[in-house]
Computed example of a mutant assay.
Amino acid sequence: MSLTFTLDPAVTPALRDGVLDLWTDVSNAGGAVGFVAPVERETIRPELVKHFAAMADGRTRLLVGQDADGRVAAAVFLAFNTHRLMTHWLWLYTVMVHPRHQGKGYGRDLLGAAAEAARGIDGIEAIRLTCRGGLGLERFYGSCGYKEVGRIPGAIRVAPGDDRDDVIMLLPLG
């Protein structure tokens, strides 16, 4: 069974709640998506609203993967660069696969769908992302074709005394 991916889905209450639940569940399962467990939906909601505002402004796009039951099972945001010298690549961020679906290849499918979506955007030549060191994410992204191009030691403070590297990765689309 695979996911059905939709780029730029209509932001309905069901989609909003599905992405919010996904983000909360991924965070609480230890996912490196901007929050540290335990986290409540209401803590994440303002950040999701910011993402939706960026989508409404045309600065960000959303790619959602739904399972056979129509539930949001995976999502990623694609953000355009606003700097005039960097408009040839975009950011991929908040890459999420629901914990109940992990280990099924859906993360790889999500990244493949994101790369395909980026290839369809005029002028985009690469995807850049950052990930939290210490979780093996670099190996996963590397297995999907991304190359580590930089690392900022200790840039992410998960908790007092628990600093992680911010790992910068790039996927050329050409």
Rank of each mutant, 00 (worst) to 15 (best):
A113I: 07
L90T: 02
F77C: 08
V36F: 03
E116A: 15
I44T: 07
A118Q: 09
G134N: 05
W89Y: 15
R164E: 07
T4L: 14
L7H: 09
L85F: 14
F77G: 01
M86N: 07
G70W: 07
V26F: 13
A113K: 13
A79W: 03
R84D: 06
V149S: 06
R164Y: 02
Q102K: 10
D8P: 05
T94L: 02
I44C: 10
L3F: 04
L85C: 06
R151H: 10
R45K: 05
G58I: 09
V76W: 03
N81I: 07
A14H: 06
L129T: 01
T82V: 05
L22D: 12
L85N: 12
L170R: 15
A74D: 11
G58V: 04
G18N: 06
F35P: 08
M169N: 03
G107L: 04
F80I: 01
F35W: 12
H98G: 05
R45S: 02
H83T: 06
G145C: 12
S143E: 09
T87R: 15
V167E: 11
L15W: 02
G65T: 00
L110Y: 08
P153R: 15
V49L: 14
I168L: 14
L92F: 05
I156M: 10
G133S: 10
I124D: 12
I127A: 00
L63S: 06
E138L: 03
V11A: 10
A114E: 11
A73D: 11
G123Y: 04
Q66I: 04
L111H: 07
M86D: 06
R71T: 00
E42I: 00
T12I: 05
E47S: 14
D25C: 03
D21T: 08
V19W: 04
G154F: 10
A37S: 14
R119A: 05
H88W: 10
S2H: 11
A113F: 09
V158G: 01
L137E: 12
L20M: 00
C131D: 04
V167S: 09
L15P: 00
A155R: 08
